[in-house]
Write a protein that binds this DNA or RNA. Structure first.
Lengths: 149, 149
DNA sequence: TGACAATCGTTCGCTACCTTGCAAATATCG
DNA sequence: CGATATTTGCAAGGTAGCGAACGATTGTCA
């Protein structure tokens, strides 16, 4: 967000945010006709490609807090796209499954891979690798600071 | 968010999101004792360093939608940190100014530059430049796609 | 001048993040 | 076995983002 170009650091943060939101906006715009949000799409993707999943595992896979996923699951259940059952050995956890309507919708959904291709296609592989390395290192450092308060 | 490492593209998107949220989380955690959100901090920063600003210009500088900024301004006014006046030649636009309490709080606030330093400090300048170039190019491509629908 | 268009801010409803606090179920260990 | 800790999910409340629709003001131009 900051436009200060003093040293070069804040600029990275700014473009990280802009890039994240631009991709998300394109995803949201593409999914809008289907009345789906981007994170809802990720949930459907996971259930369609991995199969029925316990809510806890889905949260870990998608890196979402329990409270966040809880709301998204509630929305998808309300739309009748997924089902949330609690008939396992562990009575705390809930199994998530695509409904027939959910599977039908998933088949109708357009392929979103064009977004990644549009964003990063044709860019030098070495540059992409550098970008990933920088972002991952920065993320790990920030998360370390977060753990130590 | 996606962990698929097929080609390399989706990985970039995943780390872009993680890095953005890690930085924001650290910022939020640092500001929590002061009951401030990260975007609220950016507004105070701008008013403290640039001076009183018309709301429209602030939105452009911070790249926020009118609706988003409207809510943030309302929050800061409610906290008595900024003032929103409408006494210009153009009766539509509102001038934002720090209140005395806002200036006092700003002086108490810790320096947040340690976040950028922690994230990107010590990384090769060329690698940072490459990262910025990749992210900016991807962002521009995505925004172009957004304009054409 | 008078109709129409553009701009500015607000409000509403939505998605998606978070923390905190709670209750229920399960695991662990004395 | 029983007390305690952990895990799982939910609800409430807050921040930050979006689009759409609406007054009010201002600009444009026939």
């Amino acid at each position: 967000m900051p436009e200060r170009s003093d040293a070069g650091h804040p600029v990275v943060a700014g473009w990280t945010k802009r890039c994240y939101f631009a991709g998300r906006a394109l995803m949201d715009a593409t999914l809008r006709p289907y009345d789906l949000g981007s994170t809802q799409w990720y949930v459907l993707w996971h259930l369609a490609n991995v199969g029925p999943t316990v809510q806890r595992d889905l949260g870990r896979a998608l890196e979402l807090e329990r409270a966040t996923l809880s709301g998204i699951v509630a929305t998808l259940v309300r739309k009748n796209l997924i089902e949330q059952t609690s008939g396992g050995d562990d009575q705390r956890q809930r199994l998530l499954t695509l409904t027939a309507a959910g599977e039908a919708l998933w088949r109708d959904l357009p392929d979103l891979s064009f977004i990644h291709d549009a964003a990063f296609g044709g860019i030098d592989e070495a540059d992409l690798a550098t970008t990933v390395r920088v972002l991952r290192l920065a993320t790990e450092r920030l998360q370390n600071l977060l753990r130590k308060e």
